[in-house]
Design a protein around this nucleic acid. Structure first.
Lengths: 195, 195
DNA sequence: TGGATGACAGATATCAATATTTGTCAGTCG
DNA sequence: CGACTGACAAATATTGATATCTGTCATCCA
């Protein structure tokens, strides 16, 4: 029935497709197997449980978001303040665009991310590291006031939750969202700038 | 069966009681009428719909929160930076305490607040006004950098969403919550301080 | 021999029949 | 008279009988 041999990657792709079509509530292992033209027993040969399969899907999804984001962030500006502003702006824009273009799919991945919090913690850790790197640079160059980069990066992340946490996705379509984000970014940049 | 005449206030209190006992999903107008010893038709004499009744409940609840909060905020400190820190700290502490002491009831009011967004917008407007007053004072006294108090207050409010928005209540019980809040408050205070 | 299958038990979801609730209003009673 | 009642239609929720799904495993077959 199929030419290729069945592997984990194929199963994850098929699961993503079913999730896209039916949403997180209605996707069953049986649907995934059906799409692949195999029995559901075969899926269980590659993943120990439905939960593990869903976790693999959200992990791959977040890995792709990470790669896209890393690519988009390259060229922000020369000085740390500009780069931090660029990083945050890019981060918000990327999430807002995804949420807007396909709200259903975005909600689906939000459910999966909530289900597998350790995977999303890793994603948060990555974003935090990006911020911390710029903060540390800025402290070294004298653009930012000295302090603990880890702590400052965390504060920047927390202060901007409203603009990057998927929990707030419903607010992102509001017309003031952009202005609010800029207000908070400016406040933060003033907060960490050297005096 | 009852000594007192039936009025809107009694009905709101009874509704609050039923909500406390059964949660928002399971409270019916019939339950409320039963608790009061009247027919449900009598309730409809005072409120045009179940939604209007629920709105009255959330409005009274938020009015009480506002009064408690206004009382608690009186004595924060002499200078605007101290007062702003005090205001935010008090605001977070008040909400965190409520959420911790009775999470079910807190969740109930969260549902009602989401249902009647205009009522909660009014509450947000009150909190914003409190922040704006201190920000404006600080600008006048020279403690804070000059700017548009309205805009700055909004940025302060948005940057601290994570610590006051009931949406994030689940995170408030985490041990790092306090430290995160302090990190963001410090960042903000540095951001608005005069240079 | 090792990946794939499908029958199976227990858990979960679906669906239609039934019961409850919302909101109205003509009528009761103090 | 005017606050209150309770019968009622339409909307919504509950229930329990039925169907589907998850996860296991003895068996198949390439």
């Amino acid at each position: 029935m199929r030419g290729e041999p069945l592997d984990a990657e194929m199963i994850v792709s098929a699961t993503e497709e079913v999730l896209r079509r039916h949403g997180p509530e209605k996707t069953t292992v049986l649907d995934v197997a059906r799409l692949l033209g195999v029995s559901h027993g075969s899926v269980y040969r590659h993943f120990p449980s439905k939960a593990a399969l869903r976790e693999a899907v959200i992990r791959r999804w977040l890995d792709r978001v990470r790669d896209d984001f890393a690519a988009a962030v390259q060229d922000s500006g020369p000085t740390p303040p500009d780069r931090l502003r660029g990083l945050l702006t890019t981060m918000f824009a990327a999430k807002w665009a995804k949420a807007k273009e396909d709200p259903e799919l975005f909600a689906t991945f939000r459910v999966l991310a909530a289900e597998h919090s350790s995977v999303s913690s890793a994603h948060v850790a990555f974003l935090l590291a990006q911020i911390r790197a710029i903060v540390a640079d800025g402290m070294a160059s004298g653009d930012f006031a000295r302090g603990e980069p880890e702590v400052i990066a965390r504060a920047v992340f927390d202060a901007t939750s409203r603009f990057h946490d998927p929990m707030h996705a419903a607010e992102w379509s509001s017309p003031e969202a952009q202005a609010k984000a800029e207000g908070v970014i400016s406040l933060i940049l003033d907060g960490i700038r050297a005096r």
